[in-house]
Design a protein around this nucleic acid. Structure first.
Length: 739
DNA sequence: AGACAAGGTATTTTT
DNA sequence: TACCTTGTCT
């Protein structure tokens, strides 16, 4: 039995409002997941709604898992009837049943980003498109955008007119879609698009699901795109019991087609919608909340909200500017260790957040050296690793040989001496006869042009056929073991003996245990079932709650989580906000970065540390970055800069020169921190060189000054170096000497 | 056909 | 810096 008294007024109102459309505007940390779970409990316990009739949609598997757990906890018996699912897995479930209505096999495969890229490369070759001019990525992005808006190739064609590039995209789109269908495959976007298509073309199917899902809830509504919005509104059209929860300030997936307008559209599409705002924050201290509000208030296009809390004011926010990114990592590592030793925080209370995945490496290194356990979330997807994909493609091939991509991936793994030339011949044969690649392989003996290569292909086909017959009486993990044994995959890695090879073997072991777990936890385990589950999983969701480790992740993956002690790192103009968003024509790109910053700040419960570095290695080059504008947007009274130099692992190599630009900047930083005007490296009164002069740079050598811009805080000097070409740099940092 | 070297290019963010 | 593509040599 759940206790509704523990909810505040607004929350309770939201829980009790079960009939008709409801828009819940829930600020960060306002307990929205609690509301959703209590709402589900209320529907079942008080309204006697059959759990079977309830659908809760979240965005990530992580969120779905968490919600599932909490629903189970609060509802107890009978809760497993409730569908708690991501958009994508919900669609897969529906399509597995009805995809045949759209001309697909119900055993279709799902293509991930890598598969899409491979496919696109193929198509560009087929259509004789020069990928130097038109990048595969560009086509994929364009197609994905169209799908987000529910426009198929036919609909897109009407928009082409005379535009040459659009014409090309359209041709590629058509071919891409046709190939997917031929391969009996769908990409991630298709899962949504095809489900909508299914509902639009098959009223009986639609009605079935409308009747089934009489109560629908959508979490993270601000991240839905048009297609997802359409999907939900069609489903809810009959009973109109749709509850969406979102926060426009936390919309951070515009780049993926998320449409903030959906929040506004909701009130348009459902005119009778009730709107409830949740504004009390239960997560963070007053200081952290004030900082977050300070930053987000700089966004223009937002709904005004007043997030408040009854929590104590808490500690000030630490802001730390380091000289280099290495020092930044040292600082964070040392700080974590210090607080752990003091007993203030456990490792698992700490999270290090950053803008891009590439930034994780430094922290990993330092944590490793300091012997602090950590866990990296995201990054290279477990299932995207080469060794895992190889083996999965074997399983896929055994399961459904219509997936050409999988077959082609493994045909030469291990090396079977089948080269590109032979593959092309098989491919042609397959296209001519309109059969799958694998079927063409089976027919190899009849492909005259192949010649001797036939002898190499035939054993492969026999091998796969053998596996197929095994699949009937082997369990999935036995089948995989058989593949590993027969291909000598692991043996080959063992022979290699490198650390990397060992790590790969460990990953393979991990895969085997995952399969075993799957088989133990599923009623009717099957090869297809396992592959399906795997296709939609982003990263290993081993949330070993008991193990105690620091968490490293991007700001994006941090959404929806909370940590007592958060480190927000790399707050530099050019890193966060990223270079691209600063230079974008669309000012909303910067606003999205700011929302991302807001998300980051509001992850913190008790302590927040913000760090940045003056000097950072990016793509192997040292770059100089000014402090992020987001730091300046935090009211100064909330901030402490931490005067004490934290001891780092390596002793300083040399006494810093007090007159160096760094020391000057440091002085400026410490004395009058957070007056925006003081956030500057000390600008030289004048430069001893001008445009046209020859200057020498410590690393780049000699070059000619092309331009000097007085940027207010420093001179931005453009120099054309003889060896490395044109570089822009700040005078105070670059230490240019006239020659 | 496969191994290896050289050169070019890329960085947001994720289901 | 690190990966991936391309070209060359065996």
């Amino acid at each position: 039995m759940s206790n509704y008294d523990s909810l505040n007024d607004c929350q309770r109102q939201a829980v009790f409002h079960t009939e008709g459309p409801l828009l819940l505007l829930a600020g960060a940390g306002s307990g929205k997941t609690r509301v959703l779970t209590h709402r589900i409990a209320y529907l079942i316990e008080e309204k006697e709604v059959n759990p079977w009739n309830i659908l809760a949609i979240t965005f990530t598997n992580k969120a779905a898992g968490e919600m599932r757990e909490r629903v189970d906890q609060i509802v107890g018996f009978g809760s497993d009837g409730v569908w708690v699912s991501t958009f994508h897995s919900m669609c897969v479930r529906i399509l597995r049943r009805f995809a045949d209505r759209l001309g697909y096999g119900t055993n279709f495969t799902i293509y991930d980003g890598d598969d899409q890229k491979t496919l696109m490369k193929d198509i560009c070759k087929r259509l004789e498109i020069d990928t130097k001019v038109y990048k595969e990525k560009m086509f994929l992005a364009a197609i994905s955008h169209q799908k987000d808006e529910l426009r198929g190739p036919i609909e897109y064609e009407t928009q082409v007119f005379g535009d040459f590039t659009k014409r090309k995209i359209c041709d590629v789109y058509k071919e891409y879609q046709a190939t997917l269908k031929r391969n009996n495959a769908m990409d991630f976007d298709d899962l949504i698009v095809k489900t909508v298509e299914l509902f639009r073309t098959c009223p009986d199917v639609l009605e079935y699901y409308q009747d089934r899902f009489r109560y629908i809830m959508v979490d993270e509504y601000q991240d839905t795109n048009t297609a997802q919005f359409k999907l939900v509104s069609i489903l809810a059209d009959k009973y109109r019991n749709l509850c969406v929860v979102g926060d426009d300030d936390q919309s951070i997936y515009k780049f993926r087609g998320a449409n903030i307008e959906n929040i506004l559209n909701f009130e348009k599409d459902f005119e009778d919608a009730t709107v409830i705002k949740l504004e009390q924050n239960y997560r963070s201290t007053q200081n952290i909340l004030d900082a977050a509000n300070g930053v987000i208030s700089h966004n223009i296009g937002r709904k005004e909200k007043a997030l408040w809390t009854e929590n104590e004011r808490g500690e000030q926010i630490t802001v730390r500017q380091c000289m280099t990114s290495f020092e930044e990592a040292d600082y964070v590592t040392a700080d974590i260790r210090r607080r752990k030793n003091k007993g203030e925080f456990d490792y698992k209370d700490c999270a290090i957040l950053y803008r891009t995945n590439a930034q994780s490496r430094l922290f990993e290194e330092k944590l490793l050296m300091a012997n602090i356990p950590y866990k990296l979330v995201g990054g290279i997807n477990f299932y995207a690793r080469k060794e895992i994909k190889d083996l999965l493609c074997y399983l896929k091939t055994v399961d459904n040989a219509k997936d050409d991509l999988a077959v082609r991936r493994i045909i030469n793994i291990p090396k079977r001496g089948i080269g590109a030339a032979s593959l092309a011949k098989v491919q042609n044969y397959a296209v001519d006869r309109d059969i799958s690649f694998y079927d063409a392989l089976k027919d190899a003996a009849n492909i005259v042009s192949l010649g001797r290569a036939v002898a190499k292909i035939e054993p492969f086909v026999t091998f796969i056929q053998t596996l197929r017959s095994q699949a009937e009486f082997y369990s999935v993990h036995e089948l995989l073991q058989s593949i590993i044994d027969m291909t000598g995959y692991v043996t080959e890695l063992q022979a290699e003996g490198t650390d990397e090879a060992k790590a790969r073997i460990e990953n393979i072991d991990e895969l085997i245990s995952k399969i075993v777990t799957y088989e133990e936890s599923t009623k009717e385990p099957s090869l297809s079932g396992f592959l399906e589950e795997v296709a939609l999983v982003a990263d290993i969701d081993d949330q070993d709650e008991d193990s105690n480790h620091v968490v490293l992740m991007t700001l994006h993956s941090a959404k929806g989580l909370e940590f007592p002690n958060v480190y927000l790192t790399g707050l530099e103009e050019g890193v966060f906000p990223g270079y691209a968003s600063i230079n974008a024509d669309d000012p909303d790109e910067l606003e999205e970065e700011r929302r991302l910053c807001y998300v980051g700040i509001t992850r913190a419960m008790k302590r927040l540390t913000i760090t940045c570095a003056k000097q950072r290695m990016v793509r192997g080059e040292t770059q100089y970055y000014p402090i992020s504008r987001f730091i300046r947007e935090i009211p100064i009274r909330l901030v402490q800069t931490g005067r004490e130099q934290v001891k780092t692992e390596q002793p300083a190599k040399k006494m810093p020169d007090v007159h160096s630009p760094y020391m000057q900047a440091k002085k400026a930083f410490k004395s009058k921190a957070f007056d925006p005007n003081q956030f500057r490296v000390k600008k030289a009164d004048s430069l001893d060189y001008t445009v046209g002069d020859q200057v020498r740079h410590i690393k780049f050598g000699v070059g000619t000054v092309e331009n000097i811009i007085d940027g207010g805080k420093d001179y931005e000097v453009t120099v054309n170096f003889e060896k490395v070409g044109v570089k822009k740099m700040f005078a105070a940092f670059a230490k240019l000497k006239k020659v």
